[in-house]
Amino acid sequence: MGNFVFDLIGKNIVAALVICIIPLVFILPYALIAILGELKIGAWMQDRVGPMRTGWKGVLQPVAEVVKLLQKEDITPTIANKPLFNLAPFIVFIGAFAAFAVLPFSEKFIPSGINLGLFFVFAVGSFAVIGIVMGGWASNNKYSLLGAMRSVAQIISYELPAGMVFLSIATIAGTLDMQTIILNQSGPIWNWYIFGGPQGGAIKFLFIPFFVILFIVYLISSLAETNRTPFDIPEGESEIVAGYHTEYSGMKFAMFFMAEYANMYVVSAIIVILFLGGWSSPFGTSFMDGPIWGIFWMVGKAFFFVFVQIWLRWTLPRLRVDQLMYLGWKVLLPLSIACFMAIAFLAMIN
């Protein structure tokens, strides 16, 4: 346990800076891969071939798109509120980036090993809400404002079921620390929380359905919190142009874009940490385990869920606003509370 950067450089300010930069260095190539994945998987699922011209089979397409975005003229509408308009994309990105502070990449690397990792992730999500409202309002455009309103209503609604899921896992794990939660799940695959967690003996098999339901509940709420299809009503092209980032172009639009993709990784990583053993190997502690393999497992599992998000996006149509609220408040919230009670019971008898 610990942080390999501190072991290498020692506890000083350089190490702190390096630790801050590592997630950023991770996000940039990850975003390129995710954009390529989105383009290619979306195309393949529709029996198309997708971008084919830039590089071999189009693999350089995301690079081209990013370069295009950076070159684009940065337009600020004349009647927009300039300071807030310029600030908003950065606040949204800070919200996404701050969550990386507590996401472990391996046994040996977690940017900040605070004891309140889960709670922290939950709290910094609210930065994105403020940034979205700021951008939506400052654009001085009715579609932007509508998109921002929808987005906030949606994120706040789906924070509740997500919070119940966090609470359940925190109860059974007895901690809010990401690394401890993962350590609890190391060992054979049935120690993962989706299979009921490490303790409990035979009785825990009775509780597996609850864990699976919680897993699905979190998967759905995480889609809603990142504004991904089928919960993309804040950006519904057919209704409100592009929602809260309608007026943005160039770099600032790229910021929103990056924040969305960073958020996709964050929620995928949280799914993996909470339910699928984080960086621990599915083959137990003896095979393909260790700090280096940890990075592979952590990022690999998280990438699988990024793929699932893309997969869902190209499968499902957008929900209506009332359906969205119905799902959040009347289905996911009661289900997650029921599962929370069941899991609290399991934690008690253990």
Binding site: I41, W44, M45, Q46, D47, V49, W311, L312, W314, T315
Partner: peptide, 15 residues
Amino acid sequence: GMKITMDHLFQKKVT
């Protein structure tokens, strides 16, 4: 729905 899209992911492309 997800099964359908998964099937199409590996189908021959028409482009």
